[in-house]
């Protein structure tokens, strides 16, 4: 449904997006992660047709955005980072305007408006002018306009920004339901959101796509950097030696704690049962107080990718 092939965007001599390629299928929600200025919004704007790529190809619902952006726009819903609202219009007039442009027929207009108003919980503000709305409601009106016309492709740039926890949960549910029948690309800073609703995650930094995989896949791919943390009543040097002798342990950092305790952080290879081997070795000689396998969170994975590229850029 969404396909980017070697897409590059330059402003003058500055390259904002470098050779990015990925796709999003129907019924799939893909989370788009990256720090501020990573190129998420520019990528989304290119998919939405607000700006054109310098080179490469963007297709939406099989239509090339360079030649058929008008037709593609009919099958696309887009919520930009700042909801595009006309302050002097009331909510219904605004939604009616967008629906009309999207080609919603007169006889289907009211039911379509009712559908998005109910989905985004806007019933209480339908007659209110947009400038009188709170930030949360403004965001939801922006989402409602994106959902109008039941688009095949939905692009959401930080859709839950400015919402309270209850509204965030409701909005996620709307996106999840909508994502069952459409291709959704969702940019966010909230990592748990990605884990909760996205089937795949794309990580972007410095305009380059660093990784794209399922949240679990990304976590597993970085499992070789897993740590096993132990605390025991032991002598630091001997503990370190014993741990380094365990198969699968690649490095050990030992720190002394109060009450004659020692903390050892073991870097281990990705293999099952290693915790048990470490526990056996330690328990034979000392008293083991704590043993914990530290799984990489999506946040750790994200930060590792982002930091790696930042370091590479600095080195270059």
């Amino acid at each position: 449904m969404i396909k980017l092939e070697s897409v590059t965007k330059r402003y003058g001599s500055r390259t904002i997006i470098h050779d990015v390629s990925f796709s999003v299928s129907k019924g799939e929600i893909v989370g788009f992660l990256g720090p501020n200025g990573a190129g998420k919004t520019t990528t989304m704007r290119m998919i939405a047709g607000a700006t054109t790529p310098t080179s490469g190809r963007v297709t939406v619902a099989g239509l090339d955005m360079a030649t058929h952006n008008h037709d593609a726009a009919q099958r696309l819903g887009y919520l930009p980072e700042h909801p595009p609202l006309y302050d002097v219009l009331d909510v219904t007039t605004y939604l009616r305007f967008v629906a009309k442009v999207k080609g919603v027929q007169r006889h289907a207009m009211q039911s379509e408006l009712d559908r998005v108003i109910a989905a985004c919980r806007l019933e209480a503000v339908v007659t209110r002018e947009i400038y009188k709305l709170s930030k949360g409601y403004r965001q939801r009106v922006g989402l409602a306009q994106a959902l109008l016309g039941k688009p095949d492709v939905l692009l959401l740039d930080e859709p839950t920004a400015g919402l309270d926890p209850g509204q965030i949960q409701e909005t996620r549910e709307v996106i999840r339901t909508f994502g069952e029948h459409a291709a959704v690309l969702l940019s966010t800073h909230i990592l748990p959101e990605v884990t909760l609703i996205c089937q795949r995650v794309a990580i972007i930094n410095g305009g380059r796509l660093l990784a794209i995989d399922s949240p679990v896949g990304l976590q597993q791919a970085s499992e070789q950097t897993n740590n096993v943390l132990i605390e025991a009543s032991a002598e630091a040097g001997s503990l370190r030696e014993e741990l380094l002798g365990v198969q699968g342990v690649t490095a050990v950092t030992v720190t002394a704690l109060p009450n004659d305790l020692v903390r050892a952080e073991c870097q281990v290879e990705a293999q099952s049962g290693i915790e048990a081997r470490i526990a056996r070795v330690v328990a034979v000689r000392w008293s083991l107080h704590r043993l914990e396998r530290q799984q990489p969170t999506l946040e750790n994975v994200f930060l590792r990718y982002v930091n790696q590229t930042s370091q590479q850029r600095e080195a270059a």
Binding site: A48, A50, A73, L76, Y78, P80, P84, L85, V98, Q145
Partner: peptide, 14 residues
């Protein structure tokens, strides 16, 4: 300034 140009350029409008 209202950032609504983004809406107009991404809606099916020539």
């Amino acid at each position: 300034t209202g950032r609504t140009m983004e809406l107009l350029t991404t809606l099916p409008l020539k």
